[in-house]
Design a protein around this nucleic acid. Structure first.
Length: 684
RNA sequence: CGCGAGGUAGAGCAGUGGUAGCUCGUCGGGCUCAUAACCCGAAGGUCGCAGGUUCGAGUCCUGCCCUCGCUACCA
């Protein structure tokens, strides 16, 4: 095993609070890993911080009439306190807006610049003459050149899913001033990833074929196999870290260039406070660097950041990047805008002192190999059937019986029977079993092994039946209770990475803090609690969760959902008046849907077959998220029939079905109310 | 035909050529110190679909379907 560990957890982006998906995907597994290694006496730096640059933050600030600083301060505080409350034990949680980070990021940029790693390229970009700034990505909207959708963004069309470049947009419009942008030359610095293909092949494809998770390895392989392209690492924005070279005035580092450097600056900040050297944590070959992230971040952590580190020189590369998949909530994707989420700060209010329950449920059901679903039903079941009934119940039986028979003083073992020895030997194997799973990043499995230990304790008690023996053989009972208490103590220690609050409570209850127990003590099968050791009073570790509480949570989700989406549906202003001739040139007809099917590989597009009078035709419509194909058949709709045909995803669309938007932001048909209107009739 | 990952009991997962398993849930029985644990038993699977290789396929090959990501405020 390595000498030293640098563990990073994805930097949360400070434009919103964090929810259970973040916790399950990144922070809980990283926390378990860090706590475990510390428990083995390893030198660990568990590093994180707020990611506070990027377009999304300045956009959000503008929208809310705040400064970017106010936005990031607000969410940094919220996120920071949520992590703390959930016991995520970062050694340091920094912010990318701090001077130390600006300095570190600029230094790395300067080194790369000096080494002539970057390619500099001038290109024509959209520029807003009114706001006097370049318009990147989401600062510009316009008509999609692929599907004609009128409100496509500069980086992507949300209607057809095409990935766009801002200069491709037809009739582009600045989202800042609303004015029409002009083309203007600007220079940018590019990281030539293509030049590092052989380095990546050697390092990842050959070096980590067997120890990286299939989802991570497969994703990286596909990127490399398809050929990498140079990526711009600078942007024309006013919110971010100034590019520290001549000729780059008014430019900032691209947020994805500066964010991962945040791990380094956060380490520096921590080391400085501790009065130690930060460099070994990033430069010593005997340090193991591990990035915990969600699957959407794979490219940045496996390709871009390692290339940056490699090109800068002297840095170690990640040993592993155990990216998790995503967690859904009650069958639907977690969505910030739809408020379909369980927010950590709200959970803390609604389930006070039950952080471990959520930690446990998210670990036991972590999206390690595929997307998983979080349901309140499962949350309740795991709490009531596992934490309360198995873990909590075992502890309660042991402590209550010890108080009943021995006034809370640990009885002396006397001579142990074979079954006692057996169970103690099994206990000694748990540290390695759990540790093995954790080191393989199989936290789900590890949590279940822990639960097996509590099961073992329950079974041992049930088999030994001290409550019967007490009447006939008190010496035997002393040995049994002594043994059962060893298991309880073992559970207290081994639970720590998973259930830190419970572990603490249990340690307090068993009064074993002064005994300085470790995983190694258990492994060596030493006596964990000695005879005559005095326990504290029994208290319940977990509480049952009632159905009513779960119903409340489900209700709340539903309420939030409709409320939030209602808010997003705004009535657009009336467009400039048009002439009758323009209107008359449009042909509206009644059409009947004869067939419909979803178009593969798209989210919104549906291929719809229509009968318009005697004519049959096909249109493509972006309604797949609001309707099932089967419910469309037989419906009469209003068709704009003389729109110029257009091919979308390989399907030719002849016309456009008119749609309205309802209060929830979903689509509804503008439908001829009178069913007697024949298909093919004109609408005037 | 863009690429990647996943699809195994109601839920969550393990299982890479040899009798389909584990945990939770459900049903029946036993036991009772405890917030009903533990024990015994049962039901529940055409291993996404179709074809192929093989004595033998959840596992290997080919084609297809679905979900998610790469690509959105989101890990």
């Amino acid at each position: 095993m390595s000498k030293r560990y640098t563990i990073t957890a994805a930097l949360p982006y400070t434009n919103g609070p964090i929810h259970i998906g973040h916790l399950a995907g990144v922070y809980v597994p990283a926390d378990i890993y860090a706590r475990y290694l510390r428990g083995q006496g390893k030198d660990v730096a568990f590093i994180c911080g707020s990611d506070e640059h990027g377009v999304a933050i300045s956009l959000k600030a503008k929208k809310e009439g705040k400064t970017p600083q106010e936005v990031i301060d607000q969410y940094d505080h919220l996120i920071r306190t949520s992590f703390e409350a959930f016991g995520i034990c970062f050694d340091n949680y920094s912010r990318t807006s701090r001077p130390i980070h600006h300095k570190t990021a600029q230094e790395i940029f300067s080194i790369l610049d000096k080494k002539e790693v970057f390619e500099e390229n001038e290109s024509e970009q959209l520029y807003d003459p009114e706001a006097k700034q370049f318009l990147a990505d989401r600062y510009v909207t316009g008509t999609c050149p692929v599907c004609q959708f009128a409100e496509a963004y500069g980086d992507q069309c949300e209607s057809c899913g095409s990935s766009l470049s801002a200069t491709d947009l037809i009739n582009p419009q600045s989202t800042i001033s609303g004015s029409e942008p002009v083309l203007k030359k600007t220079k940018h610095w590019y990281l030539p990833l293509d030049r590092y293909e052989s380095f990546l092949e050697e390092w990842i494809l050959k070096g980590h074929q067997n120890d990286w998770k299939p989802n991570v390895y497969g994703q990286v392989k596909s990127w490399i196999d398809n050929g990498l392209q140079a990526r711009a690492v600078t942007r024309d924005l006013d919110w971010g870290i100034p590019v520290p070279v001549a000729g780059a005035e008014g430019k900032v580092l691209y947020v994805w260039f500066d964010a991962p450097i945040g791990y380094i600056s956060s380490t520096k900040e921590w080391a400085a406070e501790k009065g130690i050297d930060w460099e070994p944590y990033w430069k010593d070959k005997e340090t193991q660097l591990v990035h915990f992230i969600g699957k959407d971040n794979i490219v940045f952590h496996c390709i871009i950041f390692p290339v940056m580190l490699h090109a800068t020189g002297g840095y170690i590369l990640p040993e592993n990047v155990p990216a998790n998949e995503f967690l859904n909530l009650e069958g639907q994707k977690i969505s910030t805008s739809k408020n379909w989420a369980v927010w950590l700060h709200e959970y803390l209010e609604e389930f006070p002192n039950q952080q471990d329950v959520l930690r446990y449920v998210l670990t036991a059901n972590a999206p390690e190999t595929k997307d998983n679903d979080f349901t309140w039903e499962e949350f309740q079941a795991r709490n009531n059937n596992e934490l309360v009934a198995i873990y909590g119940n075992f502890i309660n039986r042991v402590v209550v019986l010890t108080h009943k028979y021995y006034q809370g003083s640990v009885p002396s073992a006397g001579s142990l029977h074979l079954e006692d020895e057996k169970v103690l030997s099994q206990l000694a194997k748990f540290p390695d079993k759990i540790g093995h799973s954790i080191l393989q990043y199989r936290f789900r499995e590890a949590s279940q092994i822990l639960m097996q230990l509590a099961r073992l304790g329950n079974k041992y008690l049930a088999d030994a039946e001290p409550w019967k023996q007490i009447k006939t053989d008190p010496d035997r009972v002393a040995a049994i209770m002594h043994t059962a208490l060893q298991i309880a103590a073992g559970l207290a220690i081994l639970s720590e990475p998973f259930l830190p609050f419970t572990s603490k409570k249990l340690i307090q209850m068993l009064n074993i803090e002064p005994l300085q127990l470790t995983w190694e003590t258990i492994r060596q099968k030493k006596e964990l609690i000695p005879s005559e050791h005095q326990l504290n009073e029994a208290q319940l570790l977990f509480q049952k969760i009632e159905d009513a509480q779960m119903d409340q949570q489900r209700e709340k989700l539903k309420l939030n959902d409709t409320k939030a989406s209602g808010k997003t549906s705004t009535i657009p202003p009336i467009k400039p008046i048009t002439s009758y001739e323009d209107f008359a040139s449009l042909e509206l007809k009644v059409a009947e849907i004869t067939a419909a099917k979803k178009i593969k590989k798209t989210k919104k597009l549906m291929e719809i077959h229509l009968q318009v009078g005697a004519e049959f035709r096909k249109v493509v419509s972006g309604i797949a998220q609001d309707f099932e194909p089967s419910e469309l058949i037989g419906k009469k709709v209003t068709l704009l029939s003389n729109l110029s045909p257009r091919t979308l995803k390989g399907v030719e669309s002849k016309g456009m079905i008119l749609l309205g938007e309802n209060e929830e932001g979903g689509f509804v048909f503008i439908q001829p109310e009178d069913t007697s209107v024949a298909s093919g009739s004109s609408i005037e």
